[in-house]
């Protein structure tokens, strides 16, 4: 399920005085099984961009190709596109409305015309993927805790069996445990073969999980490459109001002080190993 975006531009309120171009001439291609982090300051156009990928917004110009087909050409069913490309909005718990958790998760597959039996299977599968207790299925979603409802909402998208999953700030507002659980779920999902696009402000999370990073600034795609490469550009990221992961900043500062350490470390473990190595080279660590 490759997605290809060509010369994508979107302008809100076109032709009025409040006209705003949110994204401008964006080009990229996403292949099967990728794990992409989409980062950018607030207002950089991330939400606008992802809403184009499943046809919720229509490009002002440019095209979005899913499986090689322009999703806005005649005869293409947007419903089908939305089934293939699942989009989990920010604070997705705000979209639940059914009387039971089961019904809410089943809303998507039912809309897409699956048989009752298929729906049942898909709901169960989705619950398993997000680690939702089956006992909760008969409960009202409005009785659950914040973290649980969020998982119900994510399951609601997974139940339509998308090939690509886009998540907009899936951990916003959760406590550290809730954050970790959701991120673990997403990691597991990716391992089942789904492509994942994670939109996040949390650079530590993105650095730890994503293989490829796309960076938006003022509606333009200003960087697109392997996580290591993008995050080693600490100064550049800071210049567009992004804060690189703390460990990357640390390495950069050590380099400024003449340390021969790599500046493309992404995790605490990597940083630790790198610092120990440098200290050994200097004969400091060995002395301890």
């Amino acid at each position: 399920m490759p997605i290809e975006v060509r010369n994508l531009t979107h302008t809100y309120m076109q032709g009025t005085i409040s006209e705003v171009t949110a994204i401008f001439d964006i080009n990229f291609r996403i292949d099967d099984g990728e794990f992409i982090g989409l980062i950018g300051a607030t207002g950089s156009g991330k939400s606008t961009l992802i809403q184009h990928l499943n046809g919720l917004l229509k490009p002002s110009s440019g095209t979005v190709l899913v499986d090689g087909v322009d999703i806005w050409s005649k005869g293409v069913s947007l419903k089908k596109v939305r089934q293939k490309i699942g989009l989990v909005f920010q604070y997705p718990e705000q979209q639940v409305f059914e009387e039971t958790v089961y019904d809410d998760i089943a809303f998507g597959p039912k809309n897409l015309g699956y048989s009752q039996k298929e729906v049942e299977g898909q709901v169960e599968e989705a619950c398993e993927l997000v680690g939702l207790d089956r006992e909760l299925l008969s409960r009202s979603p409005f009785e659950l805790s914040g973290g649980q409802v969020r998982r119900v909402a994510i399951a609601g998208i997974l139940a339509i069996k998308p090939k690509v999953l886009i998540l907009d700030e899936p951990t916003a507002g959760l406590d550290p445990r809730g954050r970790r659980e959701i991120l673990d779920n997403i990691k597991n999902l990716h391992e089942t073969g789904i492509s994942v696009i994670l939109v996040s402000h949390n650079m530590d999370d993105v650095a730890r999980l994503c293989e490829r990073i796309m960076v938006l600034d003022k509606g333009k795609l200003v960087a697109d490459g392997p996580a290591r490469e993008v995050f080693s550009q600490g100064r550049f990221l800071e210049s567009i109001d992004l804060k690189p992961p703390d460990v990357t900043v640390l390495m950069e500062k050590l380099r400024d002080r003449g340390w021969a350490v790599r500046n493309d470390v992404l995790t605490v473990e990597e940083a630790c190993a790198e610092i120990v190595k440098e200290l050994q080279r200097r004969g400091v660590a060995g002395a301890i």
Binding site: D175, D204, V247, L250, V268, I275, A285, I288
Partner: peptide, 21 residues
């Protein structure tokens, strides 16, 4: 209790464990 030590704090602790003074 399900909380986190900030990344730099974690790194300091790991470096200590690795024998760095």
């Amino acid at each position: 209790i399900g909380l986190d030590v900030p990344p730099v704090g974690k790194l300091s602790q790991e470096l200590c464990l690795a024998g760095i003074n």
